[in-house]
Every structure is written in C-alpha cells, then in structure tokens.
C-alpha cells in the first residue's frame, strides 16, 4: 500500500521538508506537492524529456524517478534557471532571440537539459548538442533554432558567473 514518507530536499536553492507519497513520481511531487508547475509532463513514460530536471547536477527525467528517491537531493527546475536579478538567464535569452520555442511546453525540459550540458561541456558543438537533445521531443520548432540558441549560450557558460543560476 502506498503511504506518505517524509523527505527533505532542496529545489532551486530552497529547502523543503515534505511528506511524499510512496507511489509519487518526482515530477508529480514537484508539481502537485511543491506547486512548481514549470516542469511539464509530456508522456510519463520516459521518452519525451519534457519533465527533465537537474538532480545533483545531472539532467534526469523526473517521471522516471520516485519522489522518495529524491530524498536529500539538490534539484534545479526551470524556475531556477533565471539570473540572480530575477531576469532571464543567458540560455533563456538566447532561446527568445533565436525563436527556439513556440508553444513552450517542451521548453522547460529542453532548457534544463541544455543547462546541464553546457555546465558540464561549455564547448559542446552542434553535433553534441543534437545528440544530447535527441532525448527531448519538440513538436513545434524542428530543433534548428534550439540548436542555434544553445550554441550561442555557450559563451555565457564559459564564464559561469553570467550563466544564470549559481544556486
């Protein structure tokens, strides 16, 4: 039988202590329990990538992780990608400049994926970016502008202070 168990975690720098249902996925926990609805559910079976968040610095599909498994973890969601002054970060600005989003539904998962990639590999080339992005489905853009935006944002990640979140 499912039941609630207490977990603690930090999300975008804020600490939470919360009871999570044992059958809750991390994405449902973030959306329903923590009310962080920026992370989206596109398929719930680990294919589309819309629910991607960073768990301890690594991009992860949050529909394929149980909420209790995030106990003690440090999580970054799309809500945590902005610059410290509350404005859009370099990656987000590049997305707007290059029209790398249309309906915006897959965008949070693509931003978190790209943020993880560029944090680890700020020199990723277009092939590497496409390779990594192949785990995220976008039905609107055809990906061309997304790749352009991520390429442009690389500069900011080479100088981490500008890259957006430092939390």
């Amino acid at each position: 039988m499912s039941r609630k168990i207490d977990i603690t975690l930090t999300v975008n720098g804020a600490a939470y202590a919360h009871a999570a249902d044992t059958r809750s996925t991390l994405v449902d926990f973030l959306r329903d329990d923590l009310k962080l609805t920026g992370t989206h559910i596109g398929c719930e079976h680990g294919v589309c990538g819309a629910c991607t968040v960073l768990v301890d610095g690594e991009a992860v599909r949050s529909c394929l992780m149980l909420a209790p498994q995030a106990d003690g973890a440090s999580i970054v969601t799309v809500e945590g990608l902005g610059a410290a002054n509350g404005e859009l970060g370099a990656l987000q600005r590049a997305f707007r400049k290059h029209h790398a989003l249309q309906c915006g539904f897959c965008t949070p998962g693509i931003l978190t994926t790209a943020h993880a990639l560029l944090t680890q590999e700020p020199d990723a080339d277009a092939d590497r970016i496409r390779d990594v992005l192949s785990g995220n489905i976008c039905r609107c853009t055809g990906y061309v502008t997304i790749v352009q935006a991520i390429l442009e944002a690389r500069d900011a990640y080479r100088r981490p202070a500008d890259a957006g979140t430092s939390r």
């Binding site: 680990g46 991607t52 690594e58 599909r61 992780m65 994926t113 990639l117 390779d131 192949s134 785990g135």
Partner: peptide, 9 residues
C-alpha cells in the same frame, strides 16, 4: 544506450 537523461540514471 538511450539518451542523455536516461544515461545519467
């Protein structure tokens, strides 16, 4: 094997 996010887990 699979994709970036899956490879992490």
């Amino acid at each position: 094997v699979a994709h970036y996010q899956i490879r992490n887990r």
